[in-house]
Amino acid sequence: RNLTILSLPEDVLFHILKWLSVEDILAVRAVHSQLKDLVDNHASVWACASFQE
């Protein structure tokens, strides 16, 4: 069985995303439609995003 980041529970993905910069979140968003939906549909992803580079 192949395990990917998409195999992780949504709460784990949120925990990972909250540590990323805006640039990295946008890069993750571009990788897969499921990740794009996760980022686009949950404001909590952006609430913790680091807007300082």
Rank of each mutant, 00 (worst) to 15 (best):
D40K: 02
Q34T: 14
D11G: 12
V31A: 13
V22H: 12
K36D: 01
F51A: 11
V39N: 04
D11L: 05
E10I: 05
P9M: 00
S44T: 09
F51K: 10
L26H: 08
D40S: 07
D37K: 15
A30I: 10
H15S: 10
F14T: 14
Q34E: 07
H42C: 10
D24R: 02
V12K: 00
V45Q: 14
N41Q: 15
L38Q: 04
R29H: 04
D11Y: 06
L6D: 05
A30Y: 06
S7D: 14
L6V: 04
I16M: 09
D24W: 03
I16Y: 05
V22F: 11
H42Q: 09
I5R: 01
L17F: 14
W46V: 07
N41Y: 05
A30S: 14
S21F: 03
C48S: 15
N41H: 13
W19S: 13
V45S: 15
L38C: 15
V12P: 03
N41P: 05
V45A: 15
D24Q: 03
N2C: 08
S50N: 08
D11V: 10
I25H: 02
N2D: 09
V22W: 12
H42I: 13
V12Q: 03
N2L: 04
A43M: 08
I5G: 02
H32C: 15
L38D: 03
T4D: 13
I5M: 10
E23G: 07
K18N: 12
L35N: 03
R1L: 09
S7F: 06
A47L: 10
I5P: 06
L35Q: 01
H15I: 10
S44V: 06
H42P: 06
D11M: 06
Q34S: 13
C48A: 10
E23M: 02
H32W: 00
D37G: 13
K36E: 02
F14W: 15
E23L: 01
D40T: 07
I25G: 00
L35K: 02
A43E: 09
T4S: 14
D37M: 15
L6P: 04
I5N: 00
F14E: 13
F14D: 03
H15M: 12
V22G: 06
A47S: 12
L8R: 01
A30P: 01
V31H: 00
R29C: 05
V28K: 03
F14M: 15
A27L: 05
L26F: 07
E10Y: 06
H42D: 03
V28S: 02
S44H: 15
S21H: 09
F14G: 09
L8H: 13
I25C: 06
Q52V: 12
E53N: 10
S21A: 12
D40Y: 01
H42W: 07
R29F: 05
D24M: 05
L20Y: 03
